[in-house]
Design a protein around this nucleic acid. Structure first.
Lengths: 203, 203
DNA sequence: CTATCACTCGCGATATATCGCGTTATTCTT
DNA sequence: AAGAATAACGCGATATATCGCGAGTGATAG
């Protein structure tokens, strides 16, 4: 996965957050998450090493306050921020773009389908393991066609996930090209999806 | 959210895992996650207090091994397991059901749409904040219709998410009723979704 | 016998820290 | 100046621990 923050960008951004007010590591993670609408949350493994490095360089000071470690910006840190104020604006734009791309990847829901299949298989494996000890509820053939159905279900789900992704991409492109996505289209979407649902009801 | 493990079930299950072999907290989380196809992962806040309690009761012993704390079952622990062996079988079934329910909730993807809207709004808010400092790229009216389009996009996405949920529910019901979901249906699904996508292309 | 009250339990949220992979930037060497 | 070695960086995975809410459970006082 492409990183959200480019080389050295996070460092500067953390410094900016600490210039606002002293914070602990967790608050910084939350601040970043909030700033990007909950779409991007930096991991602890991203934030803590960076804070430690900034402390090494003397741009912040770490104060242990009970179980929390509060980080405060120093004069040297503020100087660094002023020196590279122009970079900060650029970073904010880049990160916004990055986050939008990330949101697209997440929303496509390919992961969902994968997890779904894994759950199906785990469930099937359990059935197979449990069944032999008792009366066989399902004949061999029934088990086969059930597995077949599960795979078909998975493929349909994947198709829907792809559809979702494509549709979203279409509409986003249209919007940024200045075209208007209106209420009529919402209505059409709803009725068409209902129709397809009816059509796919197994007989 | 309904808990996956009922009262006292996790305690017993952890003991069972440690009867297999000594493990640290993280390995236990992984073992549980694997057991349920990656759908359910107990949080650290669930596992660690339980392990500490088991250690208090003398059913396991905690051995510090560098940065890892390995837990090993004691004779008292093994006795407890034997005493309640019958409960264990029931637990495994209950948890399987619980996880299947959980998977359904996650897969519906309502959360996704919400996150999507939040990302849109965060992005829109940023545009509004940034624009005034430079030449206004978009006229007020353009901004309005763009926001309208975004809301429409959100509603369509919600409709698709609902469709996905309904379809899945339909098919699952059909499968458990013994009906076969065959390849034809997969083909139909693919072509119909392509048709809807074409239909929803904004003019 | 039942109400209630303290206790237990599952679990998300809060909080911290390190390791190793892959990528990017920098510095050194030729 | 080009290319190679090195350092720095972002980040997921690994690892641990506590707190507080809400729901379940058991005991005991009335």
């Amino acid at each position: 996965m492409t990183p959200v923050f480019a080389h050295g960008s996070l460092r500067l951004y953390l410094l900016k957050l600490l210039a606002d007010r002293p914070r602990n590591g967790y608050e910084i993670i939350q601040a970043l998450s909030e700033r990007f609408g909950g779409t991007y949350s930096p991991s602890a493994g991203t934030v803590y090493p960076r804070l430690a490095k900034l402390a090494d360089e003397g741009l912040v000071v770490k104060t242990s306050d009970g179980s929390k470690n509060v980080y405060e910006i120093t004069d040297a840190g503020r100087a660094e921020l002023e020196r590279r104020a122009d970079e900060l604006d650029a970073i904010e734009d880049e990160v916004s773009d990055s986050v939008r791309r990330l949101a697209d990847e997440v929303r496509t829901g390919v992961n969902d389908a994968m997890r779904s299949l894994r759950a199906e298989l785990a469930s099937a494996a359990r059935d197979a393991r449990t069944a032999p000890t008792e009366e066989p509820v399902t004949t061999p053939h029934e088990t086969d066609s059930r597995t077949e159905s599960r795979v078909a279900l998975y493929e349909i789900e994947t198709a829907v996930a792809q559809f979702r992704k494509d549709l979203r991409s279409d509409l986003r492109t249209a919007i940024s090209a200045g075209k208007v996505v209106d209420r009529d289209l919402v209505t059409t979407a709803r009725s068409e999806l209902a129709r397809v649902r009816e059509l796919l009801r197994p007989s």
